[in-house]
Design a protein around this nucleic acid. Structure first.
Lengths: 82, 82
DNA sequence: GCTAATTACGAGGAGCGTAACTATC
DNA sequence: GATAGTTACGCTCCTCGTAATTAGC
């Protein structure tokens, strides 16, 4: 787990789709998809339910999302300090 | 800035030297040194005062250390959840 | 002379893009 | 057939280790 993954995960959560997240982050869809898969494998948990072309956060996903938000804001705060 | 850098920085802070941090992290001295240098360059701030073979945290270093502790513990908490 | 830190450089792996495929609307 | 996601693959760059250098005890 690293900040890059958390940032991408958060963006997917907020935008509701990988393609939208890709645009926001100026990345491609496959890279986003791959990163989410890696994160799921590393944590050994499913973060999204892939249903009918719609991404749905699992409970684990919701939990991680809250951590990701707190961690990211701390990091941004730290960076803006210097 | 990433979690790897923060982890290494914290270990150097806590152990008081790069060589001790290297042992703790099962890494080599040069890798530690390089990572600290990168962090200083990225944040454009000096984190340690190199005096007489002794590493001394600067004020900026102290500030970053606190952020690093909070961020790292959050990350560990998140990881231990899954 | 030994320990600690920095600098230089090369190898291996992570991360991203392109291309191709699958599937849902 | 258009949009969204996954899989495959290659290239680039990051990260680490080894080797060599500098400096303080």
């Amino acid at each position: 787990m690293n900040l890059r993954q958390l940032k991408i995960f958060l963006t997917v959560c907020e935008s509701g789709s990988m393609s939208k997240a890709a645009k926001k982050l100026y990345m491609t869809q496959p890279s986003i998809s791959q990163t989410i898969s890696e994160l799921e494998q590393e944590l050994n948990v499913k973060l999204f339910e892939r249903m009918n072309k719609k991404l749905l956060l699992t409970y684990a996903g919701e939990v991680l999302k809250e951590y990701a938000k707190r961690i990211s804001s701390l990091v941004e705060e730290a960076q803006s300090t210097f």
